[in-house]
Nucleic acid binder design. Structure first.
Length: 294
RNA sequence: GGUGCGAUGGCCGAGUGGCUAGGCAAAGGUCUGCAAAACCUUCUACAGCGGUUCGAUUCCGCUUCGCACCU
């Protein structure tokens, strides 16, 4: 189950899991973490009590879960779940993590965190140019096609080159893995205007529910990438006195809208999504039933 | 009623007699282990009508609107 933020994935997933008497696995890169329930719109206590959820608030923000690590852990978890259930519901809006789970990544060196840390330091001291020069040398083919303005891409490519001793591009095969289960992607769509209104309202509700206090409680972790998250970054700026509280709230709304837009851009090129308009539970059930019969 | 100042793209805002400021917002896009991240692209406007000029968003006049002051 996928869709932009605020599209109602969580409720729909719970309804489906109840209908099919199964469990839920999250594909949301920010709902993994504890202490971030409000800002990441994790399922409610009632929902969590009604249906067992996996990868929801099961680790601390310090225990960051990369997309690659997620692929391995989630597949292992699914293997267990499929010994008990015919159907498992996966929900979330993180495109990269959804693709990791459904299609898999190439075998690339893991445990490269220390190399990345060094590269980040070099990025800060020497600048992007210097890293680009090195990448041009180690992997000219990839250098031709990368976005050379994007530090994240340059650093990652170098990280793989340095860790493996081989060009990154050589190791990118773009082969889709076959999974020992069938995958049905259901996407939730909304007219843009309506989705944006929902997002705006939801942010107001998060504020009412205590987002500010929640953000304060993780303020000391602000440097972690798990906290590079809409809803928290803006609150941190407010705590720092850079912006007012009202400005922070407006920015959370704007950045959530932008995030939703980027998600839709990603999903547009994801193949074989069964799109349903709004939170049409009956339609979703029917699609799953037809899929199961085939 | 009079005088002065102003009118620039969705918003802010600089500027020039010919050579598309810039910022914000928005839209579109990229994406194989930081991804709610990071990054890229696009958006030729000068209130209206006349005049001067080879050429006016830029100069002049009038009109409309806004602001300030005077009566």
């Amino acid at each position: 189950m996928l869709g932009p933020t605020g599209s109602g994935k969580t409720d729909l997933a719970v309804a489906l899991a109840q209908h099919f008497h199964t469990e839920i696995i999250s594909t949301d890169s920010r709902q993994f973490y504890k202490g971030m329930a409000i800002g990441t719109a994790q399922p409610s206590a009632d929902q969590l009590a009604a249906i067992p959820h996996h990868f929801i608030a099961d680790r601390t923000p310090e225990q960051e879960l990369s997309a690659g690590a997620y692929e391995r852990e989630a597949l292992a978890r699914l293997e267990q779940l499929f010994t008990q259930y015919d159907v498992v519901v996966a929900v979330g809006g993180s495109g990269l993590y959804i693709d990791a789970l459904c299609e898999g990544f190439d075998e690339l060196p893991s445990d490269t965190a220390h190399i990345r840390t060094e590269l980040m330091q070099r990025l800060a001291s020497e600048g992007l140019e210097s890293l680009c020069l090195q990448l041009a040398e180690l992997d000219p083919a990839y250098y031709q096609v990368v976005d050379r303005h994007n530090p994240a891409r340059i650093v990652r490519a170098l990280e793989v080159c340095l860790a493996s001793g081989r060009p990154y591009s050589e190791q990118r095969t773009a082969t889709k893995r076959t999974r020992p289960f069938k995958i049905l992607r259901i996407g939730i769509e909304w007219p843009r205007e309506e989705l944006y209104e929902r997002i705006n309202r939801r942010v107001d509700m998060m504020i009412e529910d205590g987002l500010e206090a929640e953000a304060r409680s993780v303020y000391h972790l602000r440097h972690l990438s798990s906290l590079q998250t809409v809803g928290y970054r803006e609150m941190f700026d407010y705590f720092d006195g850079t912006i007012s509280r009202d400005e922070a709230i407006e920015l959370i709304k704007r950045n959530s809208r932008r995030y939703a837009k980027r998600q839709m851009t990603w999903f547009r090129r994801t193949p074989d999504i069964e799109w349903i308009m709004k939170k049409d539970v009956e339609k979703a059930k029917k699609i799953v039933e037809i899929f199961c019969e085939e």
